[in-house]
Simulated assay, not measured.
Amino acid sequence: MKIAFYGSSLLSSYWNGAATYYRGLLKALSQLGYEITFYEPDVYDRQKNRDIEAPDWCSVVVYEATHHALMQVAARAAEADIVVKASGVGFEDEALLRAVLDHARSDALIVFWDVDAPATLAQLRDEPDHPLHRALQEIDLVLTYGGGDPVVWAYRAMGANECVPIYNALDPETHHPVASNARFACDLAFLGNRLPDREARVGSFFLDPAAQLPEQRFLLGGSGWGDKPLPANVGWLGHVGTRDHNAFNVTPKAVLNISRDSMAANGFSPATRVFEAAGAGACLITDAWLGVELFLKPDEEILVARDGGDVAEIMQALTPVRAKAIGQAALRRVLADHTYALRAAVADAVFKRHLTHGTVEAAE
């Protein structure tokens, strides 16, 4: 079974939060027998900041950011049994969607895989003429990496035939406990790129508590923060590649997850970082969002903060012993319930159900 997957980037996590999600899911799907080709545009200097080389479980085609090159790779959709267009590819997304729909075989399963459903749905509500409205009539299946029932209901209301969340998860081969690294030594660390719909929450949940706790050391990782005024006890690391994520998660007493505005408002949207940190055995503090208890148990496997005041209180009371216990409990939980192998099994079942149903209809 061949999959043509058109996404942002498999090879680089640079300005690309979906990288580890793609890697974990597609590797697990390949282990189920799928033959996958991933098509990614050469944009945003991602190819200059690769985290991995082309893997043996997936073919990767990097194409130039030109309309001609886009049309060439879109034509290869005709080779696949399953054609996936992801959201946020980053170069002529609307043209790419139209082109892969036009080139896909009539018997192929067409999937729109939304890695930022709250943002996509908000755009669709604001733009009644957005091309995705019409494309949903031609798409067999919408998959999302979060959102729960609110996203499912919203997509169905907009005409999607079916919408299924395939949540972020853990790849134990890439994210796991390692030795600590002095570079990341601190009390609380946060890793995230500077984005317009996250910045205010980073100020509230991370920078404000740092200012309240001058005796503690805080570390900020991620791109775009270079000109942001920071409290004296906050160090900025810049981009932290995926090869360093385990040490970044393991070394601090605790690490922080801060959802973007849309994800927090929607709920049921655990970031990749939640599972990566838990997989390394980190003590994770997260901002509060609806549905967190479905993934990790508050106060035992994760600590939940309603605001920056809660973060400061947690950090004042958190001992190394308790932090380690929470991290170990989180590690046990994600290994049992939240691996990409389990997520891929869900996707596999959905694919097979659709393909079998399509074959029956065609025969009739």
Rank of each mutant, 00 (worst) to 15 (best):
residue 35 E to V: 13
residue 75 A to M: 04
residue 104 A to G: 13
residue 44 Y to I: 09
residue 75 A to D: 04
residue 76 R to G: 02
residue 57 W to I: 02
residue 90 G to M: 14
residue 77 A to G: 15
residue 104 A to Q: 11
residue 83 V to A: 03
residue 80 A to C: 09
residue 93 D to Q: 10
residue 104 A to H: 06
residue 104 A to M: 13
residue 97 L to V: 12
residue 47 Q to I: 15
residue 82 I to R: 01
residue 106 S to V: 11
residue 71 M to Q: 06
residue 95 A to R: 11
residue 96 L to H: 07
residue 71 M to C: 06
residue 80 A to N: 05
residue 49 N to C: 04
residue 34 Y to M: 12
residue 100 V to R: 07
residue 92 E to G: 05
residue 103 H to M: 08
residue 48 K to F: 07
residue 71 M to R: 09
residue 68 H to L: 10
residue 95 A to S: 11
residue 110 I to Y: 00
residue 65 A to I: 01
residue 66 T to I: 04
residue 81 D to I: 03
residue 93 D to W: 09
residue 62 V to K: 04
residue 74 A to W: 00
residue 111 V to P: 01
residue 101 L to H: 05
residue 73 V to N: 00
residue 70 L to Y: 00
residue 37 T to E: 12
residue 72 Q to F: 01
residue 91 F to G: 08
residue 65 A to P: 00
residue 108 A to T: 03
residue 70 L to K: 00
residue 36 I to G: 02
residue 81 D to T: 06
residue 75 A to G: 02
residue 110 I to T: 07
residue 111 V to D: 00
residue 72 Q to C: 03
residue 102 D to M: 13
residue 51 D to G: 05
residue 83 V to C: 05
residue 52 I to V: 15
residue 83 V to G: 00
residue 78 A to M: 03
residue 102 D to T: 14
residue 88 G to F: 12
residue 109 L to C: 06
residue 97 L to S: 08
residue 60 V to E: 00
residue 47 Q to S: 15
residue 65 A to R: 01
residue 107 D to Y: 02
residue 84 V to M: 09
residue 97 L to T: 09
residue 111 V to E: 00
residue 106 S to E: 14
residue 73 V to Y: 00
residue 90 G to P: 13
residue 36 I to F: 07
residue 51 D to Q: 07
residue 92 E to N: 11
residue 53 E to A: 14
residue 55 P to T: 11
residue 79 E to W: 03
residue 75 A to S: 09
residue 36 I to V: 13
residue 103 H to E: 09
residue 45 D to I: 04
residue 52 I to H: 04
residue 64 E to A: 09
residue 88 G to V: 09
residue 38 F to V: 11
residue 99 A to M: 10
residue 110 I to V: 14
residue 37 T to N: 08
residue 73 V to L: 02
residue 65 A to V: 01
residue 44 Y to P: 01
residue 88 G to R: 06
residue 59 S to D: 12
residue 48 K to L: 14
residue 43 V to K: 06
residue 79 E to A: 03
residue 45 D to M: 13
residue 93 D to C: 11
residue 52 I to L: 10
residue 75 A to W: 02
residue 42 D to N: 14
residue 101 L to D: 07
residue 78 A to V: 05
residue 49 N to V: 04
residue 113 W to V: 04
residue 41 P to E: 10
residue 109 L to A: 03
residue 69 A to E: 04
residue 34 Y to L: 13
residue 100 V to H: 07
residue 51 D to S: 08
residue 60 V to Q: 02
residue 66 T to H: 03
residue 89 V to S: 08
residue 109 L to S: 01
residue 108 A to N: 01
residue 35 E to A: 15
residue 32 L to W: 13
residue 48 K to C: 05
residue 40 E to W: 12
residue 100 V to C: 10
residue 92 E to C: 12
residue 63 Y to R: 01
residue 49 N to K: 07
residue 76 R to D: 06
residue 82 I to G: 02
residue 95 A to K: 08
residue 100 V to P: 06
residue 42 D to A: 15
residue 49 N to H: 15
residue 102 D to W: 11
residue 94 E to P: 06
residue 97 L to Q: 10
residue 34 Y to D: 08
residue 104 A to S: 15
residue 77 A to V: 05
residue 77 A to H: 05
residue 94 E to F: 06
residue 42 D to G: 08
residue 68 H to T: 14
residue 96 L to D: 03
residue 78 A to L: 02
residue 79 E to Q: 05
